[in-house]
Design a protein around this nucleic acid. Sequence first.
RNA 1: GCGCCCGUAGCUCAGUGGAUAGAGCGCUUGCCUCCGGAGCAAGAGGCCGUUGGUUCGAAUCCAACCGGGCGUACCA
Length: 593
Amino acid sequence: MIIDVLTELILNAVNAAHLAGEFPLEEMPTAVKLEKPADKAHGDYSSNIALILKKSTGLKDSRDIASRIIKHLPTDGSVIDRIEVAGPGFMNLYLKPDWLHNILLRIWAEDANYGMATNRIGDRVLIEFVSANPTGPISVVNGRAAALGDVLGNLLASQGAVVEREFYINDALNSLQLEKFAASVALRYLQELGHPLSVPSSNPEEADILEPGGADVVLQPQLSFPKDGYRGEYVRDIARAIIAEVGNRFAYPLALEPESMAYFREATLKSMVAAQREALQAFGLQYNNWFYESSLYESGSVDKTIRHLRDREMAYEQEGALWLRSSAFGDEKDRVLVRSNEKATYVAADAAYHDNKFSRGFNHLINIWGADHHGYVARLKAGVAALGYDVSRLEIVLTQMVSLVRDGEAVIGGKRKGNVIELQQDLVDEVGKDAARFYFLLNSYETPATVDVELARRQSMDNPVYYVQYAHARLCSILAKAETAGFALKSPADVNLSVLTHPAELEVLRKLADYPAEIKIAADTYSPHRLTRYARDMASLLNVFYENCRVLSGKEEEVPAEITIARISLADGARRVLRNLLTMLGVSAPEKM
RNA sequence: GCGCCCGUAGCUCAGUGGAUAGAGCGCUUGCCUCCGGAGCAAGAGGCCGUUGGUUCGAAUCCAACCGGGCGUACCA
């Protein structure tokens, strides 16, 4: 990458200047910082090395240091055209135009691999994200983690890591939530068969509502829905699906008998997981694994982990419960592993789960959690450390909260209240996967967000994703038109690129040259939102290019063939990079819109 | 109370310790007989929450304070 080349040149120059007696040097700087100046009048790249060396050299004037370094920098090579000292002592580097043009050769050669790197080869990463409880559909608030996790996976893979995506299903048998959920389904089932059902209003002030049975017949007795039951419409859908499958086999009172619960629990779980999977697929997300918490109990992993912790003397008994010595690992207090009723807590299950993740050969675990779970970070890490793992290999990314708003009013969403705003039904089905994904990737996950679905739908045409896709489609259109006009696409190596001198052309080339560095930074800082920003910038530069630089001759403007051919190369390079970028984001790159 | 996160343009948000703090939306004014106007150009709009500190240099790092969110279970 160009930055590495320049960095090495500068370090060598500093060393050469020192050896030539230009200045004393207490220690060699290890990292030279090169940046792209915001103002292009400050060169293609800019180095602050002279400012940094002020202390180490004992010289007072950074501008003087800079000029002493410059004396030892080669400007006759193929990279640096000229160097200027500016401001308090910045060294502004101007690259040879050749270098910029040659980016097109590299893009041509690497094509879909342009932007890929190898610095994470050997990393085996497991990203676990969304992992919504199987008691309701995937909500729009899950959209942020879904988009983040998926694109983060793409980013790490682009840097050479082997990445797997995993969804953890909290289906533990001692989960009371699942019992209540299954019971809610059973009651809706009976209602569908014809029993009237009295349902508590979601407003505790109001009286219960008596709903008729769903069938033509009216069966007795009349039943009542629990106060803390799950009220969502999707519960009724599951009940209908069960009727489609088994009919009235669980007719009253069988559905409410404890021995039927196992069936309802299993059926609801199966149907909920299928629905979640479908919703995430519609969002463009394909998991490698759907991991069942229950499998940890069934395989004995949880017991094994607890035994393991006891053997390592990381657990002790007190007041009838088994406690993890988490406070020894930075947690504020010790946590219960096994309750006095002998049931294991999720702390034990989570420790077993992460033990399992490591045992599958992953050396880097990433969990994406909502900020409301930040209190659990310390205890999970304590559990992992107590098992003897290096906790730095477990990384927990906390996304800030997504709150829902409808026309300016806060929506207190909830599965029990039954007003879940669904990712698939209420957003993806309305605006499409591309717009929905782009929407969630616009901002940093570290910023709290509010989502107004009504607004998002109404403004979907304003979504910047179309601006970017449009730029891509326009490139494709021009390239197709060029071909019919007799300008077949050819390798940029066979094109005289030096005629690309218009500022709009050079701006596009610079942006294309930045792409690999941009991907690397986005991967290193877990910042997919940098990509959507880059995409918008890229599209904007392309629009300026279209405006100022005609590729093909038109009625009013004749374009010399040599320039047309060079601009075709530029358009094709931009097309490839834009396509790579959109692919990274999981967004389609249409040739027509 | 304690812990974590967030305060940047009217709104939603970018901003790897660097030079004159940016974008989108909204607002004002221009530009369609030409490769896709889902576009382009120009303009108005800021004590970067406050006060100290570190630094050649702070929106960025540190401290305190002021606002807002979240968390502080033998629930997940």
